[in-house]
């Protein structure tokens, strides 16, 4: 550590010393525990693949997988549809309005997760604001069950994931030269044609990056499904926690964790390949 990293930079060739503390921490408290957990999926209750067989064979677990992918897909789709116009507006709106909208997006993102989820629990309940408003306007005669089911989970997750979709799309649209759209107009393109043939295709990298991130995060999300979802419509992360905590079935929990891990890391690898490293957007 006494070697300088200024003038003696060539000596840094082996300069892994700086990295060592972080590396040790991650090996001991990230790689080792995850590996131990995964190993339990093939060793408990006995050596073999019985946990995976059970996961793949049972209808209950199939439904959990289906729910998880369904919600993650829906959340990705809806956030993309909402985020594109918002990101676009953030780029072109007058400074003050754009600043305000940006502040709102950031505020919603930085507000405590449980506070936000709590608000949705109250808003969406039978006697909640949403249902009473709907009934007041005669849109429904009876309260619609909006919470303790996948509807509630989807609404709550869309809320949480929206900023993660807005930011990458915003980053891409901001870099598009407005003159390219002017050129499209002079070439004779109507606004709709310019949108479909120029702006949207140019925004695809941002949309893809946001979509991958939101989909991956949604697959493994725990808090929102646990609070806004019902016990009959469990999602994967919740099921892993339940297996381990309530049922003390480490084998099955480990197997489910392994599947989630493989899916997540494959999608992450895909993202790295296609788009590059995610930016700090927490």
């Amino acid at each position: 550590m006494s070697s300088t990293f200024a003038l003696a930079r060539p000596r840094m060739r082996k300069g892994t010393g700086m990295i060592l503390p972080a590396l040790v921490l991650l090996l001991a408290f990230f790689v080792v525990p995850v590996a131990l957990l995964l190993s339990r999926s093939v060793t408990e209750p006995e050596l073999g693949l019985q946990n995976y067989r059970e996961l793949l064979a049972s209808g209950t677990y199939a439904k959990i997988f289906f729910n998880t992918f369904l919600v993650a897909g829906l959340v990705t789709l809806i956030t993309a549809l909402l985020a594109f116009p918002v990101a676009w507006a953030l780029v072109i709106m007058p400074r003050l309005l754009a600043g305000l909208l940006f502040a709102i997006v950031l505020l919603s993102m930085w507000t405590n997760l449980l506070a936000r989820t709590y608000a949705w629990m109250v808003l969406l309940q039978q006697t909640g604001l949403i249902n009473r408003t709907l009934m007041q306007f005669g849109l429904t005669s009876e309260p619609i069950p909006l919470v303790n089911n996948l509807t509630g989970v989807t609404i709550g997750m869309v809320y949480i994931m929206l900023p993660f979709m807005v930011l990458p799309i915003y980053g891409v649209i901001r870099k598009i030269d407005p003159a390219i759209l002017q050129a499209a107009a002079l070439c004779g393109a109507t606004r709709l044609q310019a949108l479909g043939r120029v702006l949207l295709p140019l925004a695809v990298p941002g949309i893809a990056s946001g979509a991958l991130m939101v989909f991956v995060m949604s697959l493994g999300y725990f808090v929102t499904p646990a609070l806004l979802g019902g016990t009959s419509n469990m999602m994967l992360a919740e099921m892993i926690a339940q297996q381990v905590q309530s049922l003390v079935n480490w084998g099955l929990g480990g197997a489910a964790a392994f599947i989630l891990l493989v899916v997540t890391l494959s999608l992450y690898a895909l993202q790295l390949r296609l788009i590059g490293e995610p930016k700090g957007t927490a």
């Binding site: 060739r13 892994t16 990295i19 991650l26 408290f29 525990p33 995850v34 991956v216 926690a241």
Partner: peptide, 29 residues
Amino acid sequence: RGRFKGKAVLRTFFLTPMVLPVVILAVAL
């Protein structure tokens, strides 16, 4: 600033806890 083999891989590894679902890490720890 370091120059050693596998730097890019190491960087990706350091960022992995960010993408791994927290629930897996929570259960494992």
